Amino acid sequence: MTSPFRLMTVCTGNICRSPMAEVVLKARLAEAGLADAVEVTSTGVSDEERGNPIDRRAAAVLREAGYTVPRRAARRVTAADLGSVDLALAMTEGHARRLRALTDRPVVRLYREFDPAAPALVDGREHDLDIDDPWYGGIEDFRTTLAQVEAGADGVVAAVREALALR
């Protein structure tokens, strides 16, 4: 049996955007029949939230949308993490830059690259694809973030399916 495809989502503190993406992707991969073939985790580029659970507002929005929210603890991404993943999905250009400083492997992509409605990259301006940070906002900001995550999820699933077919 081959090892699972390893996918990691990454934001700042690993309590809002990346765990939201982790939850959504696990659900979509399960719906696609790929749950056993793909391992999804999430991390942050900062250590400031280490050990903390998912933000209560992020959890509320996920539950409101019908997702199961697991118990989890925030953690910081390491170079070893990037050495073992097949795909690291950064929530922003700044996160991608930090990840690329930790690895020379071509595994880092922006999450919204997989959203067919996202703006096209112009002159390499990756920041145009940033997923909004809901941390300083209210519940509507978390709903916006979830909508951005959901909009790219099917594209991520399709890319993973294609990568698995090439193995």
Rank of each mutant, 00 (worst) to 15 (best):
T103E: 04
R63S: 13
A80H: 14
V85I: 05
H127A: 11
A21C: 13
A96T: 01
E64L: 14
L87P: 14
R57C: 02
A32V: 10
G83I: 09
T78F: 07
R100K: 08
R76G: 06
V108W: 04
P106H: 14
V108Q: 09
L25G: 04
I54F: 00
D55V: 00
T43I: 03
S84F: 10
P106E: 10
R100G: 03
R63M: 12
T144D: 07
A35N: 12
A96W: 01
R72H: 15
A96N: 01
C16D: 00
R98S: 14
E126I: 02
T145G: 00
M91W: 02
N52A: 14
A147G: 12
E64M: 12
E22Q: 14
E48Y: 09
A30T: 12
G44N: 09
L89Q: 04
R63P: 06
D81V: 03
R28K: 14
A65N: 07
T144Y: 00
D133N: 08
L121K: 05
P116H: 10
T103K: 04
K26H: 10
D130G: 06
R105Y: 07
A37C: 11
P116E: 10
S46H: 11
R56M: 04
V77D: 05
P19S: 07
I139G: 01
R100N: 13
E93V: 02
L25T: 08
P134T: 03
A32T: 15
A65Q: 13
D130H: 04
R71V: 07
R105L: 14
F142K: 00
V45A: 08
A80V: 14
L62S: 02
G33D: 12
E48A: 11
R57S: 08
M20F: 05
E31D: 15
A120N: 06
L110H: 00
M20V: 12
G66H: 09
L34R: 15
A30I: 15
E140D: 11
G44Q: 14
L121N: 03
E48I: 13
T41N: 10
A96I: 00
I131A: 03
R105N: 05
E49T: 06
E140T: 00
L102W: 06
E31S: 11
N52F: 09
R75V: 05
P53G: 07
E64H: 10
E31N: 13
T144R: 15
T145L: 03
L25H: 01
L110A: 01
V69Q: 06
L121R: 05
Y67F: 10
L89H: 05
R76F: 09
L82M: 06
A88M: 06
R63F: 03
P119F: 08
V45M: 10
Y67T: 07
D36F: 12
A27V: 13
G44T: 15
C16I: 00
G94A: 13
A65W: 05
A32C: 09
L82F: 01
K26V: 09
D128P: 00
R57E: 00
L89D: 01
V40C: 09
G83S: 08
T78D: 10
F114T: 12
R100M: 07
C16W: 03
D123I: 07
A73T: 12
R76A: 13
A90S: 13
E113K: 09
P70F: 02
R50N: 15
H127L: 12
T92K: 12
H127M: 15
A96L: 00
A101D: 14
K26T: 13
R105W: 08
H127I: 11
V122N: 06
L29Y: 08
I139Y: 01
E48W: 14
S84K: 13
P106W: 10
V77H: 02
V107T: 05
